[in-house]
Design a protein around this nucleic acid. Structure first.
Length: 287
DNA sequence: CCAAGGCCTGAATG
DNA sequence: ACATTCAGGCCTT
């Protein structure tokens, strides 16, 4: 199999624009050509080189620069489809998010669309997050668990969450109580962590995998949403074909096992490249 | 176990 | 205009 171009693996340059617009994060904005993003109780400012400045002066490896990206890209380059995607978006990365914000974000994402998810989360932050200013700009931090936990479901609904408001409320209470401990989950193995967070109503297979991949250090998580199923059917095996509208737990799990067999333990990175590729293809049809 | 139906909301379609 | 449909699923029956 043809190896990836040497220069690409060497250059190792992160494309912040593409990474931010790859469906992983929702609360990022450009001010005067500079990206600012909410990350829990922190705000991140990034420059063209993906250097991160933290409002809280924290050391955050947001773009996972410590991952052995060259090794990972080689490992997941198992077929021409992923290789094409990697060659097209070599600077795409998976980010390391604040777990609570990530968890709430993807509960909100269920049966929704990016534009609406953004609006919902912005309103949630405005209503329940602390207001701060930084570099002469006003921000609302992402709400702390307790701030949402003590709100009523009706108040949460004013952010446009609909039936998800109840889930968001419940999740916040669980996190606040310490019943779910993110630091512990980061150290747990994939399945243990997945079972644990799926106890929260509103977190099913797909949402759980997003949370695990983007905030809990589980690079083998491979979120299977509508898009990914379509991609797998289109470019991969017929085994990924479904006649039914809903995918059962068992089907999801079997699919994930096949995916790990194919891509290996960094499958989550493969998912991100495939997803980005197909989304761009789709959008072009409408531009 | 599996499959169908309903769900907040708002933008896009007809 | 207005009604349907559908969108990065999930839960209940």
């Amino acid at each position: 199999m043809r190896p990836l171009p040497y220069e690409m693996l060497r250059s190792n340059k992160i494309n912040t624009e593409i990474t931010i617009n790859s469906g992983q994060v929702f609360l990022w904005k450009k001010y005067d050509g500079v990206w600012y993003g909410l990350n829990g109780q922190d705000i991140l400012k990034i420059n063209e080189n993906a250097d991160v400045e933290s409002y809280q002066n924290k050391e955050i490896d947001f773009f996972r620069k410590n991952d052995r990206i060259e090794h990972i890209l080689k490992t997941i380059s198992k077929d021409k489809t992923v290789r094409f995607a990697i060659e097209k978006y070599p600077g795409l990365r998976i980010v390391r998010q604040d777990p609570f914000q990530c968890l709430i974000s993807f509960i909100v994402s269920a049966n929704s669309n990016i534009q609406k998810i953004k609006t919902n989360l912005e309103r949630l932050s405005e209503k329940f997050g602390d207001r701060v200013s930084w570099n002469e700009k006003e921000f609302h931090l992402f709400p702390e668990p307790k701030a949402i936990a003590k709100a009523t479901i009706e108040e949460i609904k004013t952010c446009g969450l609909g039936y998800r408001a109840k889930f968001v409320h419940e999740a916040s209470k669980i996190i606040q109580s310490g019943e779910l401990d993110f630091e512990y989950l980061k150290k747990s193995d994939y399945l243990e962590a997945k079972y644990a967070i799926q106890e929260v109503t509103g977190i099913g297979n797909k949402v759980a995998d997003c949370i695990l991949l983007f905030s809990l250090e589980k690079l083998e998580a491979f979120p299977l949403d509508r898009w990914m199923i379509r991609i797998l059917q289109k470019y991969y095996m017929d085994e990924f074909k479904f006649e039914t509208k809903t995918i059962t737990d068992r089907q999801y799990q079997l699919m994930h096992e096949k995916i790990i067999d194919h891509f290996g333990k960094y499958a989550g990175y493969a998912q991100q490249f495939l997803f980005k590729m197909e989304r761009e293809n789709y959008q072009k049809k409408w531009l």
